[in-house]
Amino acid sequence: MMKKIDLLETSKRKLLGEGIGSCSIDELQKIEQQLEKSVTKIRAKKTQIFREQIEHLKEKEKALVAENLKLSEKYGNFSSQAAKKDQRENIHETEPYADQSSPSSDVETELFIGLPETRTRRINPPKF
């Protein structure tokens, strides 16, 4: 039993690249072949796991597309109108001060200077 353990430990060290200075060319080639087989098995397992994940994600995508279609039918144009509104709000949020440099602004404010009786709305300034 102790002899087997020693052989396994020696083999493990050689696979990890430790103590290979005293190995012959044949031993090194066997270690290389063993490592190549191990890497091939690992890559095959990795590929299999990725394929399974891709299939799972494709199924999830189909379910989400079906749910999206169902919700679109249920809410009709409401969702498209809300999406357009969100897009408009996002545009305004990204460019909040875009129109301030414009000399002719269409914005009207409720700010007046003077007594309440003298408030008059002037669209165009008086011409002289």
Results as ranks from 00 to 15, higher is better:
89 E>R: 08
21 G>A: 09
31 I>T: 05
35 L>N: 06
92 H>C: 10
72 S>N: 15
34 Q>L: 14
43 R>Q: 15
11 S>V: 04
5 I>F: 07
27 E>C: 01
84 K>C: 02
43 R>C: 04
5 I>W: 06
23 C>Q: 05
12 K>S: 11
35 L>M: 10
20 I>Y: 03
86 D>Y: 07
37 K>T: 06
79 S>F: 12
38 S>W: 01
61 E>I: 05
53 Q>R: 10
71 L>T: 00
49 I>L: 08
5 I>Y: 08
48 Q>K: 15
52 E>P: 03
70 K>P: 03
4 K>R: 11
34 Q>V: 13
33 Q>W: 07
58 K>R: 13
83 A>K: 15
58 K>G: 00
15 L>F: 08
84 K>G: 02
83 A>Y: 09
31 I>G: 02
78 F>Y: 13
58 K>W: 03
17 G>V: 02
76 G>T: 01
38 S>E: 13
20 I>N: 12
86 D>N: 14
75 Y>E: 03
13 R>V: 00
33 Q>Y: 08
32 E>A: 15
23 C>V: 05
92 H>P: 00
22 S>H: 10
32 E>W: 09
86 D>C: 06
46 K>S: 14
55 E>L: 14
75 Y>T: 01
38 S>M: 07
26 D>F: 11
93 E>W: 05
57 L>H: 05
14 K>H: 12
82 A>T: 08
47 T>A: 14
28 L>A: 03
93 E>H: 10
58 K>V: 01
88 R>V: 08
39 V>G: 00
69 L>N: 15
40 T>V: 05
89 E>A: 06
57 L>D: 06
18 E>W: 09
85 K>N: 14
57 L>C: 04
36 E>P: 02
62 K>Q: 11
7 L>Y: 08
49 I>V: 09
17 G>N: 01
32 E>H: 11
55 E>T: 09
19 G>Q: 07
79 S>K: 13
9 E>D: 11
62 K>P: 00
70 K>W: 06
85 K>S: 12
19 G>L: 07
32 E>R: 15
53 Q>A: 11
76 G>P: 00
5 I>P: 01
14 K>I: 15
40 T>Q: 12
40 T>D: 09
35 L>R: 12
64 L>S: 02
32 E>N: 13
17 G>I: 03
33 Q>L: 13
54 I>A: 14
18 E>L: 15
80 S>T: 13
42 I>A: 14
53 Q>N: 11
92 H>N: 09
41 K>P: 00
38 S>C: 02
42 I>N: 11
41 K>N: 07
